[in-house]
Simulated scan of single mutants.
Amino acid sequence: MSTETVTPRARPADAPRPASPPARGQGGPATGFLAPFAVLYLAFIIGPAVYGLIMSFFDSSLVRPGLGHFAGFGNYAEALQDRDFWSSLWHTLWFTILTTPPLIVLAFVFALLADRVGRGRWFFRLAFFAPYILPSAVIALIWMFIYTPGLGLAEAALTKIGITAPAWLGDPNWAMPSLAITTVWWTLGFNFILYLAGLQEIPRDLYEASAIDGATPWQQIRRITIPMLGRTTTLVAVLQVIASLKVFDQMYIMTSGGPNFATRSILEYVYDQGFTNFRLGYAAAVSMLFFIVVLAISAIWFSIVRRQEKEV
C-alpha cells in the first residue's frame, strides 16, 4: 500500500494577509486622548440630560432649592393637555416645513453653479458661506432693520416696483415666513459647502463620457449629479430638519414669540416655563416630550431613506 505525500498549496503573493489582532495595551494611548472628551461629554451632555429626566417627575422650581415634591407623570399630563404646548410645537413644525426644502434645493443649485464657474470660484464660496459664520444676534439685528416699516430695505425695494409691503414681523400671517427667509439667507452656506464638497468627489470622466454620447447638461445633472449626491442629500436633509426643529435664537430676538404668540417655538415655550414662570420640572417634562418628537421624526426619516437605498 503506497502512501502519497500531500504538500500544502502555496498562498499567492498578492492574497490579503489575515489581520493580526491588536497587541495588548495598544489602545491605551487612544483611550487617554479620548478620556478628556468623554469626561466633558458625560459632565455637560449625559449628566444634565439624566438630571432633566429626573426633574421632569418633580414639581421643581427655580426659586426653591432641591427637586421638590414628587409629581409622577403629572407634568407630562399637564403638557399634553395644554393648548400652548401644541401650538408652539406646531409653530416649530411649520418653521421646519418652510425652511428645509429651500435650504436643500437652493444649496444644491448654488453649489452646482459655483462648481462650474471657471474663475473666481473662491469668491462665490466666501459669499455664500460668510453669513453662516455671523452670530445669531447680528443676523437678527440686520434683518430687523431690513423689515422695519417705513425705513427697511425690503419695503423700499417693493415700493419701487409698486408692491405694498406687508407688516413683516407685525402680521401673524407674515411673521413666520419672514423668519424663514432670514434663516434661509443665514444658514444656506453650510449646506452649500456640503454639496460643493460632494460635487468635487464626482469623477469628471463620467461627464466627459456622457457628453461624448450626446447627453445634454440637464441629462447629466439628472442622470449623474443627483444620483451621485444621494448620500450628501440625505445628510443635508437630516441635519437641516434637526436644526430647524431646534430653532430659538432668531425667533426670540426678532419677535419674542409674537405677534400674539404666532412665532413661539417649542424651545421658547420651554424657556418661558422654566425661567419666566420658574417651573423647572414642567419645563423639563416638555423638553422630554420634544425629544421624543425629534427622535420619532428622525427614525421615520431614516426608515424612508433606507427603503429608497434598498430600492436603488
Rank of each mutant, 00 (worst) to 15 (best):
M1C: 08
T3M: 04
T5C: 02
V6I: 15
R11P: 04
P12D: 12
A15V: 07
S20F: 09
S20D: 13
P22R: 15
A23T: 15
R24F: 11
R24G: 09
G25K: 06
G27I: 05
G27E: 11
A30N: 04
T31K: 11
L34D: 03
A35K: 13
P36S: 13
F37R: 06
L40P: 01
L40F: 06
L42R: 01
A43C: 11
I46R: 02
L53D: 11
D59C: 04
R64A: 13
R64H: 12
G68N: 09
F73D: 07
Y76N: 04
E78I: 03
E78A: 12
L80D: 13
L80P: 13
R83N: 12
W86K: 07
S88V: 04
T92R: 01
F95Y: 00
T96L: 01
P102G: 07
P102L: 09
L106A: 12
L106Q: 06
A107F: 10
V109C: 13
A111T: 04
L112G: 14
L113M: 07
G120M: 13
G120H: 11
R121T: 08
W122K: 15
L126T: 15
A127F: 14
F128E: 05
I133F: 13
P135Y: 09
S136D: 14
V138S: 13
A140G: 05
G150E: 01
L151T: 08
A156N: 09
T159A: 15
I163S: 04
A165F: 05
A165P: 02
P166N: 15
G170C: 10
A175H: 05
P177E: 06
P177N: 06
S178I: 11
I181V: 14
I181H: 06
T183P: 05
W186K: 11
G189K: 08
N191M: 03
I193G: 01
I193N: 01
L194K: 06
Q200G: 03
P203K: 02
L206R: 09
Y207V: 07
A211Y: 07
A211R: 12
P217G: 06
R222H: 07
R223L: 13
I224Q: 12
I226G: 06
P227G: 08
R231T: 09
T233R: 08
V236Q: 00
A237D: 03
A237G: 04
V238A: 00
L239S: 00
S244D: 01
K246S: 13
V247F: 02
D249V: 02
M251Y: 11
P259Y: 01
R264F: 00
S265T: 06
F275G: 11
N277H: 14
R279C: 03
A283D: 08
S287V: 10
M288Y: 07
L289S: 09
L289R: 09
L289W: 10
I292S: 15
V294H: 03
A296E: 09
S298I: 12
I304C: 05
I304P: 02
K310I: 08
